[in-house]
Structure formats: structure tokens, C-alpha cells
Design a protein around this nucleic acid. Structure first.
Lengths: 335, 335
DNA sequence: TTGTACGCGTTATCAC
DNA sequence: GTGATAACGCGTACAA
């Protein structure tokens, strides 16, 4: 691998000059244009490639953005990750992906590794599980890291100190519930979630608030997970129950998809027999023309990456773009 | 950030000793146990954390596995990525994710960045588009990198030299088509694909071969993409056509999901009116109890990561596990 | 406008 | 068993 010194020799200049021409942080350091050209040519002919490791070592920070995700198979997080990757690469950063399965221990371990790699910033995509063992230690590590200059960003509610770029989860569910109520639905069930998972709990809060405010009785949320399978099972439970609800509000699109799949498989009609809505606005929701609350998932990722990549003097936290209701054909007004 | 020297001072030993105790590649280099303990204690109290950058610089290779993916939102690639990440982190490696949107230019650029970061290995998850502009340059860069010791692995057919861990795409489609034929279907359509996309083309080849061998006439494949939307549109086209086929074989599960969604939305029954099958075996297929060819996506990722992480003396390429037919309820035998 | 020299944190080689 | 010391490739004061 050709090094800067090779280039310098080839161009008959000093390494510093070569460095200034090729990787100069100060783009217009005084360098005569002929020297500049010579260096460029030498670099080209030698196939020079800067060593990220050496640069990182020297500058005490590498062009790495770490992403800690609950589950990359969930489109919700895949969207965020994609947003991060796009903006990161636009700024010459690289995206390190870490799956943590919503396990604080794993989050902590991956966080540590990311720090060893001198990541300029670390993004937590999912929210945390309140009171889970290990959450406290994670918080300690995170604050320590932040104190040492690591840029920590949370794209969902988190119990530690970090730059937060989050949507108002309670309100998304509140608004969506209101929409369902406005269609004439009264018996609305809530499917999906995990006990203690902050974002999911907030959605349940929003749902309940909307129900109670309008004199309807909220059902007990079926907190059996955040996956398609959870949605499938939750819906099976509702179908088997004494009374099929008018509508089912799901904690996310994956759960809604699973619910839809079950209804489809057991021959029930949507929205004739029951309305279904999700939260997220991921691709699957569009494909099935689902009613859902569209969250700016990719934008959240983008904002996080930009916040890390551009070192602003004034470190003002970005604000999350608004959520919008997507009205699909999985909901309909009830006589 | 505490460095090795800080630890050494604190423990009153030399950096070499500290290094040996904490990051020794040779785990049992002779070090007296009391010194060992002292170093450990010092490291602990100082919150020592090795610098990946320094290590990478010194060893000319960093514990990074690069992953070049067509679209992280496609579960097909997300599964592979997840497999890679799991195995990578098991071995202390970190996974760098790069989206390339099936664009050779982008693949080339990201490949280069990955190399600048001294990735120990780079995994291409998707196949390439035959004859696309930029493919040639990519091939050149890849071979150059391989010559310089970068471990390049392809998890799908690729026109350049690399360790290949791939399934037999033609056969998956061939077998699946045979299964559909065995159910009594004769008019079978093929949905999805991209002209020139090797893996997709191979599937079409397998489909056609099975059809022709049994005296059926293959339809012209609808190569309108690999996404859910593609499947939706392809199915719309078939539904609007003069003759609804008995069955639709989709190039992947996403396309199949889109096809299902369209049928569902226009009130057609699956499998009564038409059978649908996919390829991949991703989560969505299970949720909708779809007939599909299950590919060992996560295992492919795992194998790739392991191959990179463990430096074997004999560098024998891993062999891809078999694919298995998953019989779901989106297909049924036709009287 | 260009060159010299040092240090970033680590590991490996060699000496003790 | 342990300790100096020289790289690794780069950026950047400081000199010229």
C-alpha cells in the first residue's frame, strides 16, 4: 500500500506538502499549483489511499458513526440506519452497525467497542426498557463517554443524557386513536409492545388518554412484542376472544402487518370486519395500503448523522420533523 | 482517555508488559501473576480502553468487516447483514454497513472507503448487474485489493474474483417451479427481477428450464424490480391481463409480498384464484404463511464473517448450506 | 511557499 | 520475566 511518504518521494516534495495537498483539513493552504499537480499525479499513479487508522490515531477521532439498533430486520430501524448511512457517507463517514436485541448488556458491550474505535458519534435508535438490569451501567458508561467528548444521540426515549432527536410517541398514538374514534369506532384494542419499553409504553398512554377523554373504555394492551409474529398472535387472541373489537391500533407497522396476515389467513375482511392501523410508515404499510402514522424515520437518521459529521460551534440539537397521518384502506368508518 | 502508558506507570511496569497483559496476542506470554494483577487493577481503575486506531496502524489491519449491501431495507440483505454482525461481534470485529443501491459506482466508492479503513474483509451481499457501466472498474479495484491481501467475499454471483459463498439460484427457482407444476399448475408466471441482475436472471433460467422440460410454456418474466412495489405492480399487470395465471413465482419474498398485497386489495383469493410463491424465506414469508424457497441467508452472513475473522492457514472457502422448500398456504393444488 | 521533527497508542524485536 | 526502542502513517507546530 502506497503511503504518503511514497507519494512525497515520487513527487520530490516533503510529506507535509503531500499531506497538505491530499488530505489538508485546511483546503487552501498555500501550495503552488505546480507542486499541487505533481503531488496529485504521484498519488494517482501510486494508487495512494490515506490510512484511516493513522488519521484517527493522529486526530484522536475517526470518521466513524456507530449505530446501535434493536433489530436491523425491523424496517423501523432499517429506515433509520439507512438515513444515517446516507448522510454519513455524504460526509465521508462510515457507519458501524451494532445489533443489540434490546438487551442493555449487549448495548453496553457494543457501545464500548464503538468507543474503542474512536467513533465520532454513537446513535441509539431504539428506546430502552425501564428498570431492566444493566440499564444503569449503560447509563454510567454513556455519561462517561459523553464527558470525554463522544457525541451520543438517541433517536428514541432514553434514560441517559444524550442529544435527543425523538418524536412524541404518546401524541402519535393519541392522534391515531382520535382518527379511529372519528370513524365511529368505539371498541378499539391496542396490540403489541413490551412491558417497560418506553416508546411503546408512551404510545399506550396516548391511546388510553384519547379513549378516556372521549368516554370510551380502553382495552388492556396486548404487550406481546414488536414483531410481525407478535401482531399475528395478538390478533389471534382478539379473534378468539369474546368480542372482536371495531378497530385494532398496533404499536408499530410490523405488528400491524402481522395482524393483517392473521385476519387474512382466517378469512376476516379488513376494514369491513375490523379496522387495523399501525405506527411507523414503513414500506410494508404502503404496500398493504395501511392506515398508519408516518414517522420521519429516515430523517431522524439523517439528522443524527449530520449532527455528528458537522462539528458546529454551537451544538444545538436538531428537532425531529413532524409525523403525519397516512390514511389507507385498512380502516373505514363504521356505520 | 487513559493510554497503555498511563496504565504502565500506574502499575510501575513498562508499556510492553502492560501490553502483554492486556492485549497480548500471545495469551500466555510469561508474566508473573502479581504483575499481571497489578496491571489489571491499574487498567480497571483508569478505565483503560485500547485504541483500535493505534492497533490497526501497528498491525496494518483493523478488526473491521465491511458489508456492501444493495438495500438494507430489503429483509433479504438485512438477514445476511445480521448474520455477519452476529459472528463478527463474537470475534471482536465490528461491522461497517454500506448501502450501494445496486449502483456499481457507489459500490466502488464504498469499497474504497472500506479499504481506507483497513477492513480485514469486505462482503458483497448482492449480485451485480451484468454489463452495467462501472462494473468493470469495480472488478479492477476488487482484484487489486485482493492482491494486497483484502479478503473479499461474495454472497451472490459476482463477475470478479472473490471467495464465493452462494446458493444455486437457478436450482431454487427450478425446484420451486417443479413444485408448482406438481400441484397441477400449468400456466405459471414469473414476477420480479432486474434485467442483467445475475441472481435474478439465474432464477428466471431455472424457472424456464423447469417449464420447458415439462412441456409447459414459460411466460415472459416481468422484470420490474425487486421490491414490494414491483410485486404489487407486476401482479396488477397480470390481473389486468387477458388470462390470470394459475400461479405466480416471484423472484424474491418482497415481490411475493407485494403480489399478495395486490391480490388482497382487489379481492382475489389466494390460493383459490391464484397461487403465489416467493424465494428467500424471510420473516414476511413466514408471517403470511407463504410458500417459498428458504435460503440460508443468515448463515451465509455468518460463514462470511467467520471466514474473515479466523485467519486459517488453509484458506478453504466455506460452502453454502442447502436451501429448503417451505410449503405454505399461498399455494394449493389445482383440481 | 515548503521542509523538519515530533507525537498519536500500540505491538514486535531484541536485549537484559 | 521484563524493559527499551523502533516502527506503523499521518497531521501539525515550528522553522526556514
Amino acid at each position: 500500500m502506497a503511503t504518503l511518504r511514497d507519494v512525497a518521494e515520487q513527487a520530490s516534495v516533503s510529506v507535509s506538502t503531500a499531506s497538505r495537498v491530499l488530505n489538508g483539513s485546511k483546503p487552501n493552504h498555500p501550495v503552488s499549483s505546480d507542486v499541487r499537480a505533481a503531488v496529485r499525479a504521484a498519488a494517482e499513479s501510486l494508487g495512494y489511499m490515506p490510512s484511516a487508522a493513522a488519521q484517527a490515531l493522529q486526530q484522536q477521532r475517526s470518521k466513524i458513526i456507530g449505530v446501535i439498533v434493536s433489530d436491523i430486520l425491523d424496517p423501523y430501524f432499517a429506515e433509520m440506519t439507512r438515513g444515517i448511512e446516507i448522510e454519513a457517507s455524504r460526509h465521508g463517514f462510515v457507519t458501524v452497525l451494532a445489533n443489540a436485541n434490546r438487551d442493555p448488556e449487549q448495548e453496553c458491550a457494543k457501545f464500548r467497542v464503538l468507543r474503542e474505535h474512536q467513533a465520532s458519534g454513537i446513535v441509539f435508535c431504539g428506546s430502552d426498557i425501564d428498570g431492566a438490569p444493566g440499564t444503569a451501567r449503560l447509563a454510567r458508561e454513556v455519561t462517561a463517554a459523553a464527558r470525554q467528548g463522544t457525541n451520543v444521540i438517541a433517536l428514541a426515549p432514553r434514560g441517559f443524557d444524550a442529544t435527543k432527536i425523538v418524536v412524541d410517541n404518546a401524541t402519535t398514538a393519541y392522534d391515531l386513536t382520535h382518527y379511529l374514534l372519528s370513524l365511529g369506532h368505539r371498541d378499539i384494542a391496542f396490540a403489541g409492545g413490551i412491558p417497560g419499553l418506553t416508546a411503546a409504553e408512551q404510545r399506550i398512554v396516548g391511546y388510553k388518554r384519547a379513549m378516556i377523554e372521549t368516554g370510551s373504555t380502553p382495552r388492556q394492551a396486548i404487550e406481546n412484542g414488536m414483531s410481525q409474529e407478535s401482531g399475528h398472535d395478538a390478533m389471534a387472541q382478539l379473534v378468539a376472544g369474546p368480542q372482536l373489537p371495531d378497530a385494532v391500533l398496533c404499536t408499530n407497522d410490523e405488528v400491524a402487518l402481522g395482524a393483517l396476515a392473521h385476519l387474512w389467513r382466517c378469512g376476516l375482511r379488513v376494514p369491513d370486519d375490523v379496522s387495523v392501523a399501525g405506527i411507523g410508515g414503513t414500506r410494508g404499510a404502503t404496500t398493504f395500503d395501511m392506515t398508519t402514522m408516518t414517522l420521519p424515520l429516515m430523517d431522524l437518521g439523517r439528522l443524527a448523522a449530520r449532527h455528528i459529521a458537522v462539528t458546529k460551534t454551537e451544538n444545538i440539537a436538531p428537532i425531529a420533523p413532524p409525523c403525519t397521518l397516512r390514511v389507507g384502506t385498512t380502516t373505514a368508518s363504521r356505520g
